[in-house]
Structure formats: C-alpha cells, structure tokens
Simulated assay, not measured.
Amino acid sequence: MTTILVTGGTGTLGRLVTERLRADGHEVRVLSRHAQPYAVDLRAGGGLEAAVAGVDTIVHCASSPRGGDEQAAGHLIAAARRAGVGHLLYISIVGVDRVPYGYYRSKLAVERLIEESGIGWTVLRATQFHDLLAQVFQALAKPPVMALPAGVPDQPIAVAEVADRLAELALGKPAGRVPDMGGPEVRSLESLARAYLAATGRRRRLLRVPLWGSAYRAFRAGGHLTPERAVGKGTFEEYLAARYGR
C-alpha cells in the first residue's frame, strides 16, 4: 500500500483523485486549508512536516489564479525533500509555455521548480475542465447580452478523465513530462456557449468582442489547445446533460 498526499484534495480535481486512490486501497492524506488533520495553507507552509512525513508520493493539485502558487510550491518541495518523498506529481495546463497569461506563467514557473527540485517528478498538462467553462458561462450569462472573446477556440475535457490519469500516474514511477491530455473536440467558444444556454434553458444574445494583447492573440491562435492529443472521451454536451438534466 502506498501513502499518498493530495494537495487541494477537497477541490474539483483533487477530490476525485483522492476517491480513486482510496478505492484502490491506498492511504491518502488530503491537504487543504481547512481539511483536518492536514489543514495547511501552502503559501505559509506551517504544518507541512506532519503532512509529508512517511509519504511516498505527492499529487500537487492545489492552485489559485489569485497568486501564490510559486511560493506554495517552494514550501511543498522543501518539506518533501526533508521527508524523503520519492515522487512529486503536478497537474499543469496545456499551453503554459505558449500563452503569456499571468496564471499560465505561474504554472510554468511551478513546473520548473519541480523539475529542478531533485525529487522524482511527473508533470501532466491538461486542457480546461468542463466545470470551468460552465462557471465562466454562468457569470457571462447574467446580463441579457452574453459577451464572448471573439475568435477564441477551446478544447474542454472531463475532470474525471484527468483524475483517472493522475491516479494512474501517482501509482507509477516518476515519468517526467508525460503526454498532454486534451478534450475530444476543438470548439469555438460561441458553440460551447450556445450548448450551455440550451442546457440551462436561457436565451441570450451572443456578442463576439475583439480583445487586445499578446495573451488574447495566443488564445486566438490556439496556444492552449492540443488537437493532436484529443484523448478525452466525454463531450461538453454530455457534461451539461449530466449536470443540468436537459
């Protein structure tokens, strides 16, 4: 039996990874800011020693677009080194090295910290989860006109499929950078938004808004996509049907 620590283990992805590993009979410790007995704010780092003691593998799912990921990773890596952890597995995002967006740059910096940590490591990059798109569309659909960035495609993937892959990687040896995971379809944001509106029974006029800046140009060019690694099975419509029952 392997002892595994999942950071962000109460989140959308971490919760599913935890469930899968426990179902296979492994001891899994859940680390988040409020989950006892391993309630740790990684940005502060206090309490990490007890969380990592005796751990074989860390699955690092904790992340925040509000900042602090690099500091959190630094604390985690230092504690993992001291505890002799043999494998550090990180979930990243497709395109972090191609899209000059602040959160992506932070994720890429964490990748580099892990690669240079001296710990056996694995990095998996995935495209955006269906859940994230639904959250974004929910916010954008509040006004009567739904404004979308013009010309931006997306390739959403089922979070459960990424959780399955992470659980598989956590039980293997450190593998370095593994092949990316992308959803089954590259779609326009407009088509995905229309699917969301249909599933939720809303009627909104769609407005395609041209934006500016290098990050927007990179998103328009598909820097966050991996069409050659469209390995996901579940479509956005299937996710919507399961969530909203339409």
Rank of each mutant, 00 (worst) to 15 (best):
E237R: 15
A72W: 01
M146H: 01
T12K: 14
G234T: 15
L89R: 06
R82A: 15
R243W: 01
G67C: 07
E228L: 13
H87I: 00
G14I: 01
R194D: 12
S106Q: 15
L48I: 00
G120C: 11
R33D: 12
A39Q: 13
V178P: 00
V145E: 14
Y90F: 14
T10S: 13
R243E: 11
E116P: 01
G223S: 08
A158D: 12
G11I: 00
A221P: 00
L171P: 07
G183L: 00
L88W: 03
A126E: 10
L206F: 07
G213I: 03
Q71D: 13
D180F: 07
P143M: 08
A51M: 03
T235L: 00
T122L: 02
P100T: 08
G213M: 11
L88H: 03
E70Q: 15
Y103T: 01
A51F: 04
V6E: 04
G232W: 01
A80C: 14
T200C: 05
D24Q: 15
R217T: 09
A139P: 06
R125H: 13
R98C: 03
P174W: 03
A44V: 14
R82N: 11
D164N: 07
G11L: 10
E190V: 10
P184R: 06
H87V: 03
G223K: 02
R217F: 04
K107Q: 12
G232L: 03
R204D: 11
E168W: 03
K173R: 12
A170I: 09
R246P: 15
G9P: 00
H130R: 04
H130M: 02
E19W: 01
K233N: 12
P227S: 07
F137E: 04
V209F: 05
S191A: 15
L48E: 06
R29K: 08
P143T: 04
A150Y: 12
P156Y: 02
E237C: 04
Y104Q: 02
L88N: 00
A147M: 12
H224Q: 14
G234I: 12
A170R: 01
V110F: 09
L113H: 02
A215G: 04
D41F: 07
A218L: 04
L133G: 06
L16F: 09
Y196R: 05
E238S: 08
G95S: 07
L189A: 04
G245C: 09
A242S: 14
F137C: 01
S92E: 04
I91C: 13
V6S: 04
K107A: 06
L207S: 10
P143N: 05
E161G: 09
P144Y: 13
V136T: 13
P100H: 10
G54Y: 10
G74C: 08
P143Y: 09
P37M: 08
L89E: 05
G118Y: 09
I93Q: 15
P143G: 12
G102I: 10
H87Q: 05
V28N: 02
A195N: 02
A50Q: 15
L124M: 10
Q138P: 06
P65L: 06
A73Y: 02
A109C: 10
A241F: 04
L5C: 12
S92L: 07
F137Y: 10
G95C: 05
L132N: 12
V52E: 06
A221G: 10
V209Y: 11
Y244M: 13
R112W: 00
R203I: 10
G182Q: 08
Q128S: 10
M181I: 07
